[in-house]
Amino acid sequence: MAEELRRLRLHQRILRDFGQIALEGLEIGPLLQRAVAQAARATGVGHTKVMRYRAEQGDLLIEAGVGWKPGVVGIARFGTDLDSPSGRALQTGQAVLIDDIRGHPEFRLHPVIADHGIVSLLNVPVTFGNMIWGVLEADSELPGHFSEADAEFLETLAALLAGALQRLTAVQTAEVAAAEIAVRAERRAVLLRELQHRAKNNLALVAAMLARTRRAAITEQNARAAEWMGQLMQQVTAIALAQDRLSAVEGGGLGDGTTTDLAGYLRALLGSLGLSLGGRVVVEAELDACALPFDRAVAVGLVVNELVTNAAKYAYPEGGEGGIVRVVLRCDPSKAEAALTVSDEGRGMDPQVVEAAQRAGGGQGSDLLRHLARQLGGEIERGTPERGTSVTLRFPYVV
């Protein structure tokens, strides 16, 4: 069970990281190569490939891969019929797992597969909407290498990849079709709404897998793993809420569709956190109106998520009286600086004790805060109020 849980954790990290990569707007080639590399890492194999379905040729062409000999990627073609493992995944829309293809009565052995000593195969389709894009495949020289967990992982990775490919395809189509500025602007808005919808669905897939792992940890009475998974689920929720707020800023001259209404995003995030705390802690917010690029807003949101969660845990622990957590955001364009302060009136705790408690529980809260502060080009300051705890994040802010 410990090895299975370790592998599931690796799957969660890879999916979370690839979900972020899928939002970066990479070209199709680099995106596909990232996908096959992460598939190899997660399933522990030396050969992976992603194949594009070519309706005009009636075949599957390897577009990117890991571990193949020269002359395979970009050249090798696979069948789309049901006797082909990748073809069956394409035709049925289902994962195809083969423990040992040697002499298998239902599938033929492709020369490329035989030449590389491949024995077991796992194929999943890459589809979006009503469009079949292709197939993602992992291959092993060992019989019976793949498990159901590997199949679930590869299916989720394929879903994330499909969302990114759909976005890229839609953008390319829009760029070709848009002849006038007004048409381009409207089409961009449509694409952004579609991106938000797809990204939210993709993040929901990751959250579902995290929840499944958390339930397994609870069943096994692994409190440390369950708490760690719960923290990851909150962080995924914070990113999903930021995606919902991705929009043009009214009246701010930033209508490029890449900025986030930071105050609105934090209000939504704090509302979600308040519900998750079950009313034990009241969150009060005083937020200046300001806008940040999406990635910076997500970083600020993750800081708020961490600090508010810490306040609820350490200032107002379960079993005791609840209290108030205050979140104040001040944005000063004239000074090119923003300050975010999270404070409470609880019993307080020495920062070193907090960090020691977090590490004992498997958390890495202090490391995360320092990383996020560096990402924002800012710094964390700990105040010394007469009662409770106060932490301030200062970071550059330029309109």
Results as ranks from 00 to 15, higher is better:
residue 363 G to N: 11
residue 14 I to E: 02
residue 265 Y to K: 00
residue 155 E to H: 13
residue 120 S to N: 11
residue 203 L to C: 05
residue 177 A to N: 09
residue 16 R to G: 11
residue 199 A to T: 08
residue 205 L to M: 09
residue 114 A to N: 12
residue 267 R to P: 04
residue 288 D to Q: 03
residue 359 R to P: 00
residue 215 R to G: 06
residue 251 G to W: 07
residue 183 V to A: 15
residue 374 R to A: 10
residue 294 F to L: 08
residue 258 T to I: 06
residue 176 V to H: 12
residue 339 A to N: 03
residue 251 G to P: 02
residue 205 L to Q: 12
residue 46 G to R: 15
residue 223 A to P: 10
residue 365 G to V: 06
residue 109 L to P: 04
residue 194 E to S: 13
residue 274 G to I: 00
residue 215 R to P: 03
residue 184 R to I: 07
residue 45 V to P: 03
residue 119 V to K: 11
residue 140 S to D: 05
residue 2 A to G: 14
residue 42 A to H: 01
residue 115 D to R: 15
residue 116 H to T: 04
residue 349 M to L: 14
residue 204 A to E: 14
residue 72 V to R: 01
residue 101 I to H: 04
residue 215 R to Q: 11
residue 89 A to Q: 01
residue 350 D to W: 02
residue 74 G to T: 02
residue 290 C to H: 00
residue 27 E to V: 08
residue 24 E to S: 08
residue 59 D to A: 07
residue 263 A to Y: 06
residue 256 D to V: 05
residue 136 L to S: 15
residue 326 R to I: 01
residue 92 T to W: 02
residue 294 F to V: 07
residue 173 T to F: 15
residue 353 V to T: 11
residue 276 S to I: 10
residue 367 D to A: 13
residue 208 A to S: 11
residue 316 Y to C: 05
residue 234 Q to H: 10
residue 81 D to N: 04
residue 261 D to F: 01
residue 185 A to L: 15
residue 1 M to W: 13
residue 89 A to S: 09
residue 92 T to C: 04
residue 352 Q to L: 11
residue 343 S to L: 04
residue 353 V to M: 08
residue 43 T to A: 04
residue 78 F to A: 02
residue 276 S to M: 09
residue 182 A to I: 12
residue 334 S to R: 09
residue 187 R to W: 14
residue 378 G to C: 09
residue 54 R to G: 00
residue 377 G to A: 03
residue 261 D to V: 00
residue 104 H to N: 15
residue 97 L to P: 01
residue 78 F to R: 03
residue 245 R to I: 00
residue 241 L to I: 14
residue 361 G to D: 11
residue 264 G to A: 03
residue 294 F to R: 14
residue 383 G to S: 08
residue 175 E to C: 14
residue 71 G to Y: 06
residue 60 L to A: 04
residue 344 D to E: 14
residue 30 P to W: 11
residue 1 M to L: 10
residue 302 L to Q: 12
residue 176 V to R: 14
residue 16 R to F: 14
residue 288 D to M: 02
residue 74 G to H: 03
